[in-house]
């Protein structure tokens, strides 16, 4: 069980959080093609390694935030605001 750093509440156990998957996916406009829309809905890079993803501290402050996490080691590198850009140095 991981321990995640909520930017507002500090380090808390994994089961207080909800993982929202890959972050910073841009929502296409309504007049996009079926292909673009399908890609937005379902297609993910799903990297083995560093993954920028969003989480919500559901059983806590309720806030969403971003992290960069290694999907193999589960080590967490950067923790950053939900509307912030991914920091450059992200090595966990």
């Amino acid at each position: 069980m991981m321990q995640l750093q909520c930017p507002w509440c500090g380090r808390r156990p994994e089961n207080e959080f909800h993982c929202g998957g890959t972050t910073a996916i841009v929502r296409p406009p309504i007049d996009c093609s079926d292909e673009v829309w399908g890609n937005y809905l379902f297609f993910r890079k799903n990297p083995k390694g560093l993954h920028a993803e969003r989480w919500r501290h559901t059983f806590g402050c309720g806030q969403w935030f971003n992290i960069v996490r290694d999907t193999v080691t589960h080590e967490v590198g950067a923790v950053y605001g939900i509307t912030e850009a991914q920091p450059r140095a992200v090595d966990p």
């Binding site: 069980m1 991981m2 156990p13 994994e14 089961n15 909800h18 993982c19 998957g21 799903n46 083995k48 993954h51 993803e53 996490r69 999907t71 193999v72 080691t73 589960h74």
Partner: peptide, 13 residues
Amino acid sequence: DHFPSYAQRGSFA
């Protein structure tokens, strides 16, 4: 488990 992973071990929760 509740989050993407390539680690072949599960969350204790």
